[in-house]
Design a protein around this nucleic acid. Structure first.
Length: 218
DNA sequence: TGCCAGGCCGGGT
DNA sequence: ACCCGGCATGGC
């Protein structure tokens, strides 16, 4: 079977098993971007605690975070872990947003995707996954997000070798699927959902995984 | 009680 | 171009 159909079949299988995921869990594009930085190598539940702290202090806005001292921020986002480094990363994203788009996510959205991705990657603390999460989930650009679960599922199914460069995984989706925001949104969210449930690090294969019947291990 | 979570950076080969 | 240590909390 062709790669294209494999990936689509995987998608439909996951969708049938789990249904729509309603991602990203965030009320505004800015909140999505903040969440994307806070969730780096971190459980989403902890990120929610950090975001709730910000909300309680009315600090979840570009202006509030822009004005906030780098001394106070780590304390608010503490539950998300890596709080010192993430405070700096949030700050560098805010600076970028202020300098290049007058603090407006709407203006950022008007930037051409390829250019914007390159610019995001230059921001300290924003790597490929975070950049693509912002592009797809905050700005609704057709960019596929690759994360640890996606990599793990694909390599365990023999679709791509283990630990290839980020862009290799991404090219696979971009060349095999229609560049559709809704599809990319749902598909990546489903990978995370399936990964959390059935594809943990120490569990190589799982009998209950909805993908068990479409394994192509080589 | 360790292991794990929706990565990324900086310094070294 | 890779490789690796560091970064840190909270849930199971």
């Amino acid at each position: 079977m062709k790669q294209k159909n494999r990936l689509l079949e995987m998608y439909y299988t996951l969708y049938r098993a789990f249904g729509p995921q309603h991602w990203w869990p965030g009320e505004t594009p800015f909140e999505v971007a903040v969440g994307a930085i806070l969730t780096q190598n971190t459980n989403w539940g902890n990120v929610e605690k950090a975001i709730n702290n910000l909300k309680k202090q009315d600090a979840l806005s570009v202006i509030a975070l822009h004005k906030m001292s780098v001394k106070k921020l780590p304390d608010l986002i503490r539950p998300a872990g890596y709080f010192n480094i993430k405070a700096k990363r949030l700050k560098s994203f805010i600076s970028f947003l202020m300098n290049d788009y007058h603090g407006s996510m709407k203006k950022m959205r008007d930037e051409e995707v390829k250019t914007l991705r390159v610019k995001l990657l230059r921001v300290n603390g924003i790597g490929p996954e975070t950049a693509d999460s912002i592009l797809l989930y905050a700005l609704e650009k057709p960019v596929f997000v690759i994360d640890a679960y996606t990599k793990r599922v694909l390599s365990r199914h023999g679709i791509i070798e283990h630990e290839r460069p980020y862009e290799k995984y991404q090219e696979l989706f971009h060349s095999s699927l229609k560049e559709d925001v809704k599809l990319f949104n749902e598909y990546h969210a489903l990978f995370v959902r399936a990964g959390k449930t059935f594809c943990k690090r120490k569990i190589p294969l799982c009998e209950k995984c909805p993908l068990r019947n479409i394994l192509w291990l080589t």
